[in-house]
Design a protein around this nucleic acid. Sequence first.
DNA 1: TCCATATCGTTCAATGTTAAACTATTCGAT
DNA 2: ATCGAATAGTTTAACATTGAACGATATGGA
Lengths: 160, 160
Amino acid sequence: MPTHYQGSNQQVAALDLFIKLTRASESILSKLFKPINDAGLTASQFGVLEALYHLGPMCQREIASKILKSTGNLTMVIDNLEKRQLAQRVRDTKDRRMITVSLLPAGKELIASIFPAHVERLTQAFSVLSTEETVQLNNLLRKVGHHVATLSVDRQALTS
Amino acid sequence: MPTHYQGSNQQVAALDLFIKLTRASESILSKLFKPINDAGLTASQFGVLEALYHLGPMCQREIASKILKSTGNLTMVIDNLEKRQLAQRVRDTKDRRMITVSLLPAGKELIASIFPAHVERLTQAFSVLSTEETVQLNNLLRKVGHHVATLSVDRQALTS
DNA sequence: TCCATATCGTTCAATGTTAAACTATTCGAT
DNA sequence: ATCGAATAGTTTAACATTGAACGATATGGA
């Protein structure tokens, strides 16, 4: 997948790295969620169930921030989980703006039955890396991630 | 962002790495495409225009394989580009099943005006890494990417 | 020539996704 | 106490995304 762009070496390297990063991520994601999709869950639904399973009941805004989605999106995803009796909404009595979402038995069973195999596949996927390489990758991603988070305001203003 | 899961060290490390990888990818993607969205293009539209810009006219199936999307999806994205006079469809006269998609002047101008700044932001994003670190990250991602691609058939059968 | 098969693109149904406008509720400052 | 600001969730419009079914076209072999 060569980059068809004539720029400086640094620019070509950045484009190349960007493509590799997103492709690796997408490739892992699609392979990983195939069995989950086959089990009848979308990635978003899985994300919500997993959050509720490991962190306990939460309001929708909390879930949204955990899985990095908009609250409007959460309304739809949880609608679909409710239709299938996998989760439930309970209006908070103290603060009636909030709705606490929790797993129903069917949802708990489902996520409990799916999650271990998911982790196993994930472990398999990264098993090609040595312990040291894992640490390296972790550090490099953290470095880039933090840097990009920093860029936001200044660069946004400069470049738009 | 701790992992709330009790598994083996290897499993916890894999989960952690997976989260970092996808978050880094998503974080870079969202920052990077913000200015492009502001310019009135979605990520998919940008992807199609960029492919046509750097690789020349192509049929929809080729575009789909370049940007890793389904052909059904391409129909919609190109519909939207056509509506805005950014690209055009031309039915192939030799093989009437195919449609060659090419840039219209407005599309060419738009992508030409957007792409350099895009590359610059990308370069900025990765500028936090040294040349050596860039090579490292590249190699690690290639390693994982290739391995995951390999897993497909066997694991899919085993785990579903 | 004719037919089975493959290929290209479209359509459909279902779900996801966001930003923005909106409703209901709460909270804080005066 | 009241009113303006903030917060939680919903709705809407527009676009994305896929898999599966489908129509049109091409191709190769009988």
